[in-house]
Deep mutational scan, measured.
Amino acid sequence: VTTYKLVINGKTLKGETTTKAVDAETSEKAFKQYANDNGVDGVWTYDDATKTFTVTEMV
């Protein structure tokens, strides 16, 4: 189990959250659901070296 981080650069929501998951794909699903639940829709990137997802909304 690995800890993954999500950085949110939204128009109205900014911040970070973490989750523990067995792999990046599992954490990505959880993070995308979290973003969707909070009305964040944007461009996703992933940095495997830091286990960090970033979602950026276009303004």
Rank of each mutant, 00 (worst) to 15 (best):
V1Y: 14
T2Q: 13
T3P: 04
T3M: 11
K5F: 13
L6K: 02
L6C: 06
V7A: 03
V7C: 07
N9V: 14
N9C: 14
G10E: 02
G10V: 12
G10I: 12
K11G: 08
T12R: 09
T12F: 14
L13Y: 15
L13N: 07
K14Y: 09
K14F: 10
K14W: 10
G15L: 15
E16C: 15
T17H: 14
T18R: 06
T18Q: 09
T18P: 02
T19D: 05
T19Q: 09
K20E: 14
K20H: 10
A21N: 05
V22M: 12
D23G: 04
D23L: 04
A24Q: 13
E25K: 12
T26G: 06
T26H: 09
T26C: 06
S27K: 01
E28M: 15
E28Q: 11
E28S: 08
E28G: 09
K29Q: 09
K29P: 01
A30Q: 12
A30F: 15
K32A: 04
K32C: 05
Q33F: 05
Q33N: 07
Y34H: 04
A35C: 15
N36H: 15
N36I: 15
N36R: 15
D37Y: 07
D37R: 10
N38S: 08
G39R: 06
G39L: 05
G39E: 06
V40Q: 02
V40T: 03
V40I: 15
V40L: 09
D41L: 12
G42C: 03
G42W: 06
V43Q: 08
V43R: 07
V43G: 03
W44V: 01
W44D: 00
W44E: 00
T45S: 11
Y46I: 00
Y46C: 01
Y46L: 01
Y46D: 00
D47F: 04
D47T: 04
D48I: 08
D48A: 13
D48W: 07
D48R: 07
D48T: 08
A49V: 11
A49F: 10
T50V: 05
T50Y: 04
T50R: 05
K51N: 07
K51C: 05
K51T: 03
T52D: 00
T52P: 00
T54G: 02
T54N: 04
T54A: 04
T56F: 08
E57N: 05
E57M: 08
E57Y: 08
M58Y: 14
M58H: 12
M58Q: 11
V59I: 12
V59K: 10
